[in-house]
Amino acid sequence: MYDFAYHKPATIADAVKILSADPDARAIAGGQTLLPALKHRLNRPPAVVDLSGIAELRGVKRDGNKLTIGALTRHVDVANSPEVQAAIPALAKMAGSIGDIQVRNRGTMGGSVANNDPAADYPAAVLGLNATVVTDKRRIAADDFFQGMFTTALEPGELLVAVEFPIPEKAGYAKMRNPASRYVMAGVFVAKTAGGVRVVVNGAGPGVFRQSEMEKALTANWSADAVAGVKQSAEGLNGDIHGSAEYRAHLVTVMAKRAVAEAG
């Protein structure tokens, strides 16, 4: 990796101050994406702001019908959290399925959400559960937050602080892993929420997206059979040496069925 300045602020305010002063500075949480990129010299930030010293970014809190998860909460902590397991078991299970043990012991929710890798797991849950992304400056609805491949509504210098998940009536998640990387090749997160049914696809396209036909089908009839006949168009989906866009489109229907079955 190239040389960079290293900062380890203790408060959100200090972190934001450093990040705002230099638009090319990069925040690092668990480092599961940025660190490999640095090692491969694919990224050359002048400064790296290590968030691990900011205690207020950690933790899971239940507040009535809402679960708030701090940005720096690791996947392993979400997976093992009794609060998450009780309130949104699909979220705990999803977190427990990310990468491998090493990744889950380092990777954080905020890092995954802010990075918005199309093949990551968390964006599907955040969008599927109609969560609210809380930053140091504002609150952003999930529908407005994810803006395509590695792009979000976050402004330069803006720090993702937490995500608020409304507790759904039921939710489920199923995915097909890329055989090599074990990232998501096609995944579907389904939820029955107070605001209606949501079906979100990850992995298959250039970014996480809602599948409105499936949402309609499940609104009318919450069952795996209801989505079994809904075909996802292959247009615009990813194709590579591991599978064509058509294969991924097919997997969307399969994973939707499984996610509904998982949700019960």
Binding site: P179, A180, S181, D240, I241, H242
Partner: peptide, 11 residues
């Protein structure tokens, strides 16, 4: 080499 790393070469 398209399968030039563990991300694309399935061990």
């Amino acid at each position: 080499l398209l399968s030039g790393s563990m991300m694309d070469y399935t061990m």
